[in-house]
């Protein structure tokens, strides 16, 4: 009986760990870019159009996912602290008053990774399980 409980506990822990690990996101840049680390606040300001560069002056162009993407919802919940519908309201204020447009969008992680790998001033985000040598992770969002 004790063994069964122990096995169940290990299984539960492993499941929790696995789901937690799967939810981690990596903020990525091109490996040729000198940037090695960014703060969550810098990422938020880039994606909300409040700046076009990091605090050290490095210019980066954010790339985002199309609406309906689960990772996009998670990114704005965790990094910006607001749900997607309020983000859309925010951008509608800026766009239709001529104060800025939201980041360009692509449909999935493979395209985001390929875009960042091919553009030296791009910044994006993907699931950490998709990391490889074509991009550099500069922040892990748990």
């Amino acid at each position: 009986m004790i063994k069964i409980k122990l096995l169940f506990a290990i299984f539960a822990l492993a499941t929790a760990f696995a789901s937690s690990a799967a939810a981690d996101m990596a903020i990525i840049v091109n490996p040729n870019n000198a940037v090695t680390k960014v703060s969550s606040d810098e990422v938020k300001r880039l994606y909300m159009g409040k700046t076009k560069s990091l605090d050290d002056g490095t210019r980066l162009i954010p790339i985002d996912y199309v609406d309906g993407s689960a990772i996009k919802q998670e990114f704005y919940d965790k990094v910006v602290g607001k749900p997607l519908d309020r983000i859309k309201v925010y951008w509608s204020r800026l766009t239709f008053s001529g104060h800025g447009r939201p980041p360009e969008t692509l449909s999935d992680s493979a395209r985001i990774k390929a875009w960042v790998a091919g553009n030296s001033d791009a910044i994006g985000y993907i699931d950490t399980t998709l990391l490889d040598g074509s991009v550099r992770a500069v922040l892990i969002v748990k």
Binding site: K88, V89, S92, R93, F96, S97, G98, H99
Partner: peptide, 22 residues
């Protein structure tokens, strides 16, 4: 700097007065 035909900027929503979703 902006030049041309510009929206009146004063007040909170003047610049996107017609954009209902905003």
């Amino acid at each position: 700097l902006k030049f041309g035909k510009l929206k009146y900027p004063n007040n909170l929503v003047s610049e996107y007065y017609d954009v209902g979703l905003a």
